[in-house]
Design a protein around this nucleic acid. Structure first.
Lengths: 138, 138
DNA sequence: ACTTGACCTAGAGTTAACTATAGGGATTAA
DNA sequence: TTAATCCCTATAGTTAACTCTAGGTCAAGT
């Protein structure tokens, strides 16, 4: 069974070795084994687990909460409910973030059009008779 | 023309007065006027401008870059191209973020189903014969 | 045996974006 | 006129998530 050094793992995950060691220090990787002399050996499944950790980070979850999840995983079936609840919360959070991004996108697209028009006219004055009249708000 | 105190403006924007003063210090609000004794007076249009600033923040733009945009606004028509380019960049960035959130959501939803099944069965062992077999990666 | 390069830990430093405190001034109600 | 409640500045402190340095170990090649 192939293993990876910390720098190989970092490359596969698009992280730095500093970050991986930091995650380890924060208790996010209790499953990564070591050689007798202390060098970390990353298994394929460890890379997979780290991808899940990256996924949780992408939902905006702080590292301390991710650690709770890792701890629950080590505790076994008695924490299944917590883990399920956690993922349902993450799902709701991602849905909310998507909704906010959609609203943000509407404003940004409006601004793109505003500046396209102004650029074609050579001046922002083209928008002078809009309901509100500021280069920042329109 | 009605104006708002800093605490009223903060309430309208769901920010703290600390944050608003911080933004001012960072040069994000050169348009906000003051009373002779130095108290800030927020016009309706200032609130609007701050909403745009919050919108840019929501795209992940750092405050220093938002300041460039505010500076460009003060410089007039000669910066129209920069401002247009900036909003087009923001648009691309938001699109990329939405795509990443979509991918994240797929993984999270998979995990929700994984834990629903495990919870119904009372044990994670129900997933023992999946391709890869870890409580973290499945 | 010796050098090289990757690994290790402990701990210090960085950055962004707040958040809070201290000390003081102005406006309003009693 | 005095107390409360806002406002102000300057500056210090906080937090998260890295990022880096110093000093040392270890395995492989020459």
């Amino acid at each position: 069974m192939r293993t990876y050094s910390i720098s190989e793992a970092a490359k596969k995950l698009n992280l730095t070795v500093y970050t991986l060691r930091y995650y380890d220090k924060e208790g996010l990787m209790p499953f990564v084994e070591r050689t007798p002399s202390g060098t970390r050996l990353f298994k394929e499944s460890d890379i997979g687990a780290l991808k899940i950790i990256e996924c949780l980070k992408a939902t905006g979850m702080p590292i301390k909460e991710i650690k709770s999840f890792i701890d629950w995983c080590s505790e076994g079936d008695s924490t299944l409910q917590q883990r399920y609840d956690m993922f349902m919360e993450r799902k709701a959070s991602v849905e909310a973030q998507m909704e906010e991004l959609r609203k943000t996108m509407e404003v940004i697209e409006h601004k793109c059009m505003y500046y396209k028009t102004a650029l074609d006219a050579g001046t922002e004055d083209i928008h002078k008779n809009d309901k509100v009249g500021s280069s920042i708000t329109n």
